[in-house]
Design a binder for these strands. Structure first.
Lengths: 209, 209
DNA sequence: CACACGTGCTATAGTTTTTGTAGTAAGAGG
DNA sequence: CCTCTTACTACAAAAACTATAGCACGTGTG
């Protein structure tokens, strides 16, 4: 993503704050007054931000309210199809869809579950939401964990003096204990979506405010 | 809900159509042109609709775009805490929260699950979405069913020549067969939400467009 | 019955605000 | 030197608000 100039960053941050506070995006002229800046200057900044992909800004003509939105990849939480061996941050950059959930931000991501290690509690195909923390607060929390360099799996996590106990919900899978240094916690379970709700919520790189 | 006059109903329907087609609500003056009607007339209709609770309409002052939205109970799908012995339609009127899901309309409702007859697949506290159909298309679909005048429960439904087989997912509950005339299908499973997603989505009688 | 009154619907005229366009200009950096 | 960023002035177009008025259709009252 292209770098922003000082003023462009100030405009962008203030815009995001306003969105967080009020839930909506402000009038251009009111926003310009708020920034202590001229309307035309603000407009030029927004056009620059738009060209760099930080916002979506479309003038509609005189007197008409312009369209001003955040692109999905900035405000939605990314839905990952699978997490390969690499670090999580790379997988997030390749997310192809986003969930517009208020209250969820940079610290969260979603995973489209493959496999049935947590069945029947979590089904193949469910979209599970995670907090990007690296530590569990108590035993028995469901986590997205990576053992060594393998794929990410979902398990209950318990802590012992030597390492983590990875416990599946599905009794067909084995419970294993792994030393701390071989386990990476990618995220902690926060909730899930299943079935046709997904089609109604998941946004494929489209825009929303 | 108060009755609408001829013109008010025309305005309301056209507004709803526009929202369905474009996803957004139009400018007042553009909309007035579209209706072949004067701007001031349209405004008066919207004010009448607002007073009767069909839309939310707030003038913001000269030159400022007014706020125009549909109330939650008209566009969101109702979330029911429990369904008492009475008919479903009454329970829906008493819904105290709504899910804003595009693609779901009058034919859908949601239920906050009590009990664990479908555990572990569906947990106590999950919000499950249903289609308001009265018939199953194939055996094994999950349905919200009412036996006689009792509470609504979630079960797999199979059809035999004499009646329905109500099959829980939880093996601790019994599988029973009930004659057709004693079973009412209230809805057919379409998906579910679990955990903190709910707080981000559920709207308590607030407004949105 | 005639009348006033309210309601629904429409329209005109004038004002304010926002937004857009054009043009100008100074400073930074490759 | 050219481009990008930042900023301003001046003017134009569209949207939206206010106030006012006319007409049709009821309903209730004297």
């Amino acid at each position: 993503m292209k770098p922003l100039s000082t003023m462009q960053e100030r405009v962008f941050n203030k815009l995001r704050d306003h969105k967080r506070r009020t839930g909506i995006l402000p009038d251009l002229s009111a926003f310009a007054r708020d920034m202590g800046m001229h309307y035309v200057s603000l407009k030029q900044h927004l056009e620059a931000l738009s060209k760099k992909g930080y916002v979506v800004f479309e003038s509609k003509g005189r007197g008409r309210s312009p369209l001003l939105e955040f692109p999905a990849e900035l405000t939605g939480i990314p839905v990952l199809g699978n997490i390969p061996a690499g670090p999580l941050s790379e997988a997030i950059l390749e997310a192809d869809s986003y969930l517009p959930l208020s209250g969820f931000h940079e610290d969260h991501f979603a995973l489209r579950v493959r496999g049935d290690s947590m069945a029947d509690l979590i089904q193949d195909g469910d979209v599970v939401l995670f907090d990007k923390r690296k530590q569990i607060e108590r035993s028995g929390q469901i986590c997205a964990v990576r053992v060594e360099e393998s794929e990410v799996t979902l398990k209950y996590l318990d802590k012992t003096s030597e390492g983590y106990i990875l416990r599946p919900h599905n009794p067909l899978y084995p419970t294993v204990e792994v030393p701390f240094k071989n386990v990476t916690i990618e995220g902690i379970y926060m909730g899930l979506l299943r079935g046709e709700v997904l089609a109604a919520l998941v946004q494929d790189r489209t825009y929303y405010s």
